[in-house]
Measured scan of single mutants.
Amino acid sequence: SDYEVNVNGIHHRFHNISEELIKFIEEALRRGEDLREIIKKVRELLG
């Protein structure tokens, strides 16, 4: 049904976003950045 496609589409989009965010955060932590600064950047990215 349309509803299922829609829900799956939304889930898929969020899954991709969270994968990208996790990579972004892991790389920043590897560079020794402060978690609070990383979260601030993530918030800015998400608008």
Rank of each mutant, 00 (worst) to 15 (best):
S1P: 04
S1D: 05
S1T: 14
S1I: 14
S1F: 15
D2I: 07
D2W: 10
D2G: 04
D2T: 06
D2S: 06
D2M: 03
D2E: 06
Y3P: 01
Y3W: 08
Y3D: 00
Y3K: 02
Y3T: 01
Y3E: 00
Y3C: 03
Y3G: 01
E4D: 13
E4F: 04
E4P: 03
E4Y: 06
E4I: 09
E4H: 08
E4V: 09
E4T: 06
V5W: 02
V5P: 01
V5I: 14
V5K: 01
N6C: 06
N6F: 06
N6P: 01
V7N: 05
V7K: 05
V7L: 07
V7S: 07
V7I: 10
V7E: 06
V7C: 06
V7W: 10
V7M: 07
N8I: 03
N8P: 03
N8S: 05
N8E: 07
N8H: 07
N8V: 03
G9S: 02
G9T: 02
G9K: 01
I10H: 15
I10T: 12
I10R: 05
I10D: 11
I10P: 01
H11S: 15
H11Q: 12
H11L: 15
H11G: 07
H11F: 13
H11T: 15
H11V: 15
H11Y: 15
H11E: 12
H12F: 07
H12N: 02
H12R: 01
H12S: 01
H12W: 06
H12I: 15
H12K: 02
R13Q: 15
R13W: 15
R13S: 15
R13G: 15
R13A: 15
F14Y: 02
F14E: 01
F14I: 00
F14P: 03
H15F: 07
H15E: 15
H15R: 06
H15V: 11
H15I: 08
H15C: 04
N16T: 04
N16S: 07
N16I: 02
N16D: 08
N16Q: 06
N16W: 06
I17T: 03
I17R: 00
I17G: 01
S18W: 02
S18F: 04
S18C: 01
S18H: 05
S18P: 07
S18K: 05
S18G: 08
E19R: 11
E19A: 10
E19M: 09
E19I: 11
E19D: 13
E19L: 14
E19K: 13
E19H: 13
E20W: 09
E20L: 07
E20C: 03
E20K: 10
E20R: 10
E20S: 12
E20T: 10
L21A: 12
L21T: 14
L21K: 04
L21R: 02
L21S: 07
L21C: 09
I22L: 03
I22Y: 04
I22N: 01
I22H: 04
I22D: 00
I22A: 04
I22P: 00
K23L: 13
K23R: 13
K23Q: 13
K23M: 14
K23I: 12
K23H: 14
K23Y: 13
K23E: 13
F24N: 05
F24W: 12
F24S: 06
F24R: 05
F24D: 06
F24V: 09
F24C: 06
I25L: 04
I25H: 00
I25S: 00
I25G: 00
I25D: 00
I25E: 00
I25V: 08
E26V: 10
E26K: 10
E26P: 00
E26A: 07
E27P: 01
E27S: 14
E27I: 09
E27V: 09
E27G: 09
E27Y: 09
E27R: 09
A28G: 08
A28Y: 08
A28C: 04
A28I: 04
A28S: 13
A28V: 05
A28D: 07
A28L: 12
A28Q: 15
A28E: 15
L29S: 04
L29T: 05
L29H: 04
L29A: 06
L29K: 04
L29R: 05
R30Y: 14
R30K: 11
R30A: 08
R30W: 12
R30C: 03
R30V: 13
R30F: 14
R30Q: 13
R30N: 11
R31C: 05
R31P: 01
R31L: 14
R31K: 11
R31I: 11
R31Y: 10
R31F: 10
R31D: 11
G32A: 09
G32N: 11
G32S: 11
G32D: 10
G32M: 06
E33N: 09
E33A: 08
E33G: 07
E33R: 08
E33Y: 09
E33F: 09
D34Y: 07
D34G: 13
D34P: 13
D34V: 07
D34H: 10
D34I: 06
D34E: 10
D34S: 10
D34T: 10
L35D: 02
L35T: 06
L35W: 04
L35R: 02
L35Q: 02
R36S: 12
R36L: 14
R36H: 12
R36Q: 15
E37R: 08
E37Q: 11
E37T: 10
E37N: 10
E37P: 05
E37G: 09
E37A: 10
E37K: 07
E37D: 13
I38T: 05
I38A: 03
I38N: 00
I39K: 03
I39L: 04
I39C: 02
I39Q: 03
I39W: 02
I39H: 02
K40A: 14
K40Q: 12
K40F: 10
K40H: 11
K40I: 13
K41Y: 09
K41M: 14
K41L: 13
K41A: 14
K41R: 11
K41C: 08
V42M: 05
V42E: 00
V42D: 00
V42L: 07
V42P: 00
V42A: 03
V42W: 03
R43H: 15
R43M: 15
R43F: 12
R43D: 15
E44H: 08
E44Q: 10
E44I: 07
E44R: 07
E44C: 07
E44A: 07
E44D: 10
L45D: 06
L45Y: 09
L45W: 08
L45E: 09
L45T: 08
L45K: 08
L45M: 13
L46Q: 15
L46A: 10
L46M: 14
L46T: 13
L46S: 11
L46Y: 07
G47D: 13
G47Q: 11
G47P: 09
G47N: 09
G47E: 12
G47H: 13
